[in-house]
Design a binder for these strands. Structure first.
Lengths: 214, 214
DNA sequence: GTCTATACACCGATAGAC
DNA sequence: GTCTATCGGTGTATAGAC
C-alpha cells in the first residue's frame, strides 16, 4: 500500500540507493579520508546528482559514519563466526587472528578505514560516534574476555590486556592499511595470496610466542 | 651583502619564518591530515596572511612534504644515536625500540604523521615524494641490516625481514597514533609516563620472545 | 617579506519543480 | 526519489602594491 516499492525481487540487491552509496563511498573514504572526499565525486560514481545524496543521508558526516559502522559490524561478524572455536583461549585467539586477516585481505578498504576510525577521532560527534564506538567495543570485549580467560587458566602469561589489544591491532590491521609501503617492502602486494599466507604465519608465531607462559 | 639578514643571533631561533610555519602546520596535519587542513588556519596561527605562506612554500603539498621529511629525519636521527649500542643485534634492536618509543612519546605529532606517511600514499608526487621515501628507506635499511646480522650469527631466529619491519612499526608507531583509543582502552593517556613505561615493557617482551631462536 | 585584492573551482547544504 | 538552480563559504593560488 505504500507508495514506495518495499516488495523486493528476493535475492536481488534491494540495496535501494542507500547501500549503493555506502559501497561507492567506502573505497573513497578509505583512500582519501573524510576530508579528502567530495560528495560530488561520490555522486558521480553512483550515477546520481550531488543533491540526491542528501535524500539518503542528511549530511556527509552521517554517510561517513554509516560506512564506518558497516565495516566494524562486518568485521565483528567475521570474528564472531569463530567464537566457539576449539577449547583453549589461545586456539580462539589464533582463530580470530586468522579470521581477521582473511577479512582484511578480502576487503581492501577495511584496513585503511579501521585504522582511520582508530586514530582520526575528531570527525564523528556523539550521536553517530556512539554507534561506531559500540561496534568497536564489542570487538574489544570479545578479545578481552578470552585473554582474561586464558590468563586465569594459566594458559596465557600475565600481560596488560589493553596493551595486548593495541599490539594485536598493530600487528593485524596496520599491515593491511599500508598497501604501497607493504609492496615496496615485500616486493609483492600484501593482498597477494602469497603475502597473506606469509603475514598469517608471521602473526601466528608472534601470538604463540608472545602469549605463552614463560 | 645580501639584502636578507643571513647573520643570525647565534643560538636564537633563526627559524626565519620557514621553520615557524613548519612547526605550526605539523600538529594540524597530524590531527586532520593533508586534506583536512586549510592554509588559512595555518596562516592565522603563524600570524601571517594566507598569501604570505606562498612566499615560503610554493604549494600546500610542498609544505606537507617539508613537515613529513622533518619528522622522518628527526626520527632517524634519534635511532642513529643508538647505532653503536652494545654488541649483539638483539641489544641494538632493543635500544632502537627504546629510542623509538622515547621519540614518539616526546613528540605527539610523530605517531600520527608517521602513520599517515605510511598509508596515505597518494598525496606526495615524485619530486618531494622521493625525499620522504629516502628518509624512510634509511630507517628500514638500518633495521634490516641488524636483523640480517642477528640471523646470520644465529642470535635471531629465521624470519621474514619485511614482515618483521611491518610488525615493529605496528607495535611501536601505531599505539602512539591512536591517542584517544589508547586512552579509552588504557584508562590513562598513552603519553603519560606510566603508560610509556608499560608500552616499552610490553614491546620489549614481544621483541625478546618474537625474535629469539626457538 | 608581508600585505590587499582577486581569480576561479569546489565545498556541503537547501529550495523547490517534477 | 531525482533533478536544476542556487546559497554562502572556503579551497589553493596568483598579481601587484608597499
Amino acid at each position: 500500500m505504500a507508495t514506495h516499492n518495499t516488495d523486493l525481487p528476493a535475492g536481488e540487491s534491494p540495496a535501494s540507493s542507500r547501500a549503493k552509496i555506502i559501497e561507492t563511498a567506502e573505497p573513497l573514504f578509505a583512500r582519501q579520508g573524510f576530508a579528502g572526499v567530495g560528495l560530488r565525486e561520490v555522486a558521480e560514481r553512483v550515477g546520481l546528482g550531488k543533491s540526491s545524496l542528501f535524500h539518503h543521508f542528511p549530511s556527509k558526516v552521517k554517510l561517513y559514519a554509516a560506512v564506518l559502522e558497516r565495516v566494524l559490524v562486518e568485521f565483528d561478524r567475521r570474528l564472531s563466526e569463530r567464537e566457539r572455536t576449539a577449547g583453549t583461549a589461545l586456539a580462539r585467539l589464533h582463530a580470530w587472528a586468522d579470521a581477521g586477516v582473511d577479512t582484511l585481505a578480502e576487503n581492501p578498504t577495511f584496513g585503511p578505514l579501521l585504522l582511520r576510525s582508530l586514530f582520526e577521532d575528531d570527525i564523528l560527534a556523539p550521536p553517530e560516534r556512539d554507534l561506531v564506538d559500540a561496534a568497536f567495543d564489542r570487538i574489544v570485549a570479545r578479545i578481552s574476555r578470552t585473554l582474561e580467560e586464558g590468563m586465569a587458566s594459566g594458559e596465557i602469561r600475565e600481560l596488560s590486556i589493553p596493551h595486548t589489544i593495541q599490539s594485536l591491532i598493530g600487528l593485524t590491521v596496520y599491515p593491511f592499511a599500508s598497501d604501497s609501503l607493504g609492496q615496496r617492502l615485500l616486493g609483492s602486494p600484501i593482498y597477494s595470496a602469497e603475502q597473506i599466507r606469509a603475514r598469517k604465519q608471521h602473526l601466528f608465531e608472534f601470538i604463540a610466542r608472545g602469549f605463552s607462559v614463560p
